[in-house]
Design a protein around this nucleic acid. Structure first.
Lengths: 216, 216
DNA sequence: CAACTACCTGACCACAGAGTCAACAAGTTA
DNA sequence: TAACTTGTTGACTCTGTGGTCAGGTAGTTG
């Protein structure tokens, strides 16, 4: 009994070490990459912030590139999930509102991930190009189709679904990407919850009205 | 006569060397910084692309940082100019349309500059913070005031000028920042003139309708 | 406890990249 | 032409960084 228990405890403890360190490193790495970019981030700086020796980082991730890709890989998933929820049978009034809200929330809650993603795109998506051409593109085409059906049902004005999506993406994404700049301009240390809510609401209003979608 | 002429020619030639090299370096540097970011860009790579020895770059720009700041400094100016043109006596219908058009054009014609600016903001504007707090903020506040006056005149719905500007900035800026991603999704090598026009028109329509600005 | 595996880490290496410098070339002016 | 300024460049230094490695320790299993 004691043996088993002890063994179990130890086994769990050992697994926890790995899991814990992995998580710690990924979290810290995400912060650093978001702030300084891939080239501006050193393994040493990650190590320092995580309170681990540099060699230990390299023990879990063979190279810096592997670590970065690992961080990246989780981001695209998050990005795609929200879009899937828009379907043709929903009314755009609800669907778009919800999507915009989620995207802005994401900019707030996963600001680092969002910024890394943006930075990646900005520099030509060297590590993401393939995934964009497959996963994201499939989802994109499908969502454009949904919008086309909304238009066919005359639930909204006939406008380019592609450009509409670009507009929604960029304006919601901006609350992560340019949050700092925005806060400077608005004269505060950082954007608060209200700012995000106001932003989401404004984007929603403008998009819905702009697309000729009658509200209520 | 011959002497003077010769002298003049030589003087001009000498000045031209400086001017020409300066311009060449700045242009190449802008490309590299846009594509690889500050840390991802090496002086050697700039030198190579400009067909100059590395030392020569350092002769004109004491350090990499000086060169980068020089590139940056020209960008903010461009960014501010268009905004100045929006004034309270104009009707937002015209003013916003024009501003959006200019901003999208800028994303097309000065894509590198736009991307450097975006990248700078994305990483907390380490080199631009001061200028943002002064120049850009002044212009921002003033433009917000213009919008407030439009609202007071009931030329548009009462919406937050700050967030409206963020929305316009980000959605127009996106045509530079995410141009590559967009082209991938739309299945072409790069966005063509039509895409930019369509984008500008769509943003304009949505913003004008979204703000409750009657067109014509 | 013994053998084993997973985890940890300081010392080390190779190399790239920013910036210096000294010597030289080319234009400029009197 | 002589004195001077401006431009040019290869060779060099020095720091920082990604990554290796060997020798450790701590958990694990029979």
């Amino acid at each position: 009994m004691t043996d088993t228990k002890k063994s179990v405890i130890k086994r769990r403890k050992s697994a926890d070490i790995r899991k814990g360190n992995l998580q710690l490193i990924l979290t810290v790495a995400e912060q650093r990459f978001a702030e300084f970019g891939y080239n501006g981030t050193t393994i040493s700086s990650i190590a320092e912030q995580a309170n681990l020796p540099k060699s230990n980082i390299l023990y879990y991730f063979k190279t810096k590139e592997v670590l970065y890709k690992e961080v990246l890989s989780q981001i695209l998933k998050i990005w795609l999930v929200d879009m899937e929820e828009m379907t043709a049978d929903q009314h755009p009034k609800e669907a778009l509102r919800q999507y915009i809200l989620l995207k802005v929330r994401q900019s707030k809650d996963h600001s680092n991930a969002s910024r890394i993603f943006a930075s990646e795109l900005l520099h030509g998506a060297p590590f993401l190009k393939e995934k964009l051409q497959t996963d994201l593109k499939v989802q994109f085409i499908s969502t454009c189709q949904v919008i086309r059906e909304w238009i066919a049902k005359q639930w909204m004005n006939p406008i380019s679904p592609e450009h509409l999506l670009f507009m929604i993406w960029s304006s919601t994404q901006a609350y992560a990407d340019y949050g700092l700049q925005s806060s400077i301009l608005m004269g505060k240390a950082e954007l608060d919850d209200d700012d995000f809510e106001t932003g989401a609401e404004l984007i929603t209003q403008i998009v819905l009205r702009g697309c000729g979608i009658k509200q209520l």
